[in-house]
Design a protein around this nucleic acid. Structure first.
Lengths: 197, 197, 197, 197
DNA sequence: AATGAATGAGTCTTCATTCAT
DNA sequence: TATGAATGAAGACTCATTCAT
């Protein structure tokens, strides 16, 4: 009888991570107490500190997971065998769908970065930059190929699009009029239209 | 001899508001203690509670000021005597410049809304919606007039643009390569290009 | 009606210091909780942290008081107008009596120094050294004058005597056979006899 | 292949004892966590609790070892075939050398006695008394024989000397100007000189 | 003989707010 | 108008010890 799982069979660290994600998104990092997390996960404080060094550590794990997933997806789309216009459209739409599918992660991501310890913050920023640069390279590729306008610096284009992705957690509601895919198509379309020469 | 001012002549409530704005933007609302605010403003706790009912109140005042300013500016541009295309471009660029000029306010705005008490939160949301609707009306006016594409719902267009405005506090640095006006022109341009029929 | 005093009229900071001294001596610094201190002083935790920055601070205050008193007494005896032999005897006996009269302070002093924060520890050590050096100067004066033997380095003589003072808190009991003054006379006598040429 | 030893061949219990001694002396009993001890010894917590009933037990073992060694050495010198003056001098010097050679043990001994559980504390005190009495008997023997002054009660003489031994861990530094033997000779000399009739 | 996950009581400290003056 | 002492609830984190394996 393993001690690492409870009635539901999920290992303790993952139960803690899930509970923390939900609560951090709900009330914000500072407003979430360690006590609430462990109660929500059905374990004790000692257990949490057995697996995670600190509350900050827990937040960092959430970040690490999000970053890894997003980077992998972007790489897949960017490396695909398709015209550059298509690859940009696919990547731009995919990040929207993925973000909507994990709105909790997104809220945390954009709202709680400054709660990480300085060194962890730095690490996250650097991985984030890698992501940004991969996307920027795609835009530049299209600009070089002449299918995208060069009127706007690629950096700014990337920030423009990711601003709207970032913003999703502020306004998107699952029971709204548009499905995630529809929102994604619209936003990717806006990007592509803005890039027309 | 007025007791409400200090050596610098600025009234106490405004000194408090300025100190709070700076600190909230710097460390976030929860990480800023009332003690730090009063020290930074050079007054005592009693003074703060004389002018403001609570820490939350102070945050609310910051919001009120930002909202009022932005709404006034938007109204001015929207009501101007110019072609719709020009009015949208001007309004879109202006909100960028104003936001960059008050980056502290912007950081607070988008990051600390959930720290307001429920009723104040509701009030802010409602004023925010009014702002959103005024901008959406402009977009719709252009779509009806046939100068903007109807491919994307106006609501989504507004969120697209304001996502990028919101995002500014994440990436814009005063000593970067672009002036506020240049950034504003680029972002307004992207919006207008995306709206081309 | 002053808020700084309680039923007994003693100011809060002093009540806290007295309670802390008693408890630190009784159970040791680490075994004494802040909760116990405030309960024993009849105030709340908030009050303690209003006057003292930390538990460590409280300990430091105890040290500061003891050091000041001892240094003042030593200086008085050392500067007195009497033969060197008499001055050494008086100083040596006085530190014994004073230590016995404040055995709590002494227990804390010799047992809890390593609980101070590094910088405070350094500061206490430096004041302690000053005390040591004043006493050593007396011994050396006697050695130069030829009334004390030069067989043992003065430094070692000082440590020899203060070892026995330090040790008092380990064995002295108020209801033992000897009064503080008798113990003091004996210990001073041992020192002087050891110093006979 | 014995499981009780590691790469270095030292049995686990002894490795634990050595690690605990070092750490207790370094940071004090309360500031040393069981986790630190096992890490420093290269074993796990389970192993520690397999060999020792509690953290307190570990401390008790340190005491038992020190007491046994010191008692044996004192007995050997006291029972030697030499004039009483010589035997006292040898015993007095030997305890100084032994203490300096095991300064960690000494720090722990004099600083952590009150961390022992009441019954263990009592036991240690009683063995300590036995040691004290053996030494006192030597002093008294000299006093009866007329080679030592009777001016000071023998009990006090013992405490005087052991005070200085106790104090060694406070000031003695291995790289100081005096070797352990030189310090021992000086301190024994001071004792003998103080006892001259 | 040894592991290491889990406990749960306890630690120090922070902080928004109140209130007599 | 302004002070600052005092509150009290809540916060993150530590740690000796247990126990199924």
């Amino acid at each position: 009888m393993a001690r690492t799982t409870d009635g539901d069979g999920t290992p303790v660290p993952q139960r803690l991570l899930a509970a923390a994600t939900r609560l951090f998104a709900d009330r914000g990092y500072d407003r979430t107490s360690v006590q609430e997390i462990v109660e929500s996960a059905g374990v004790t404080k000692g257990a949490l500190y057995h697996y995670f060094g600190s509350k900050d550590d827990l937040l960092h794990e959430v970040y690490a997971r999000v970053l890894r997933v997003q980077q992998e997806r972007l790489d897949a789309f960017a490396d695909a065998d398709a015209p550059i216009e298509q690859r940009v459209r696919d990547a731009a739409a995919d990040v929207v769908v993925t973000t909507i599918d994990n709105l909790d992660d997104a809220s945390i991501f954009f709202r709680s970065m400054h709660h990480l310890s300085p060194e962890k913050n730095k690490q996250v920023r650097s991985e984030r930059r890698r992501y940004h640069e991969r996307f920027r390279a795609l835009i530049e590729e299209g600009q070089e190929a002449g299918v995208f306008s060069k009127a706007t610096p690629a950096d700014l284009v990337v920030d423009y699009h990711f601003g709207s992705v970032h913003h999703l957690s502020t306004w998107y509601r699952p029971n709204g009029p548009l499905t995630p895919q529809q929102v994604a198509d619209h936003l990717a379309d806006l990007l592509l239209r803005a890039l027309r020469p």
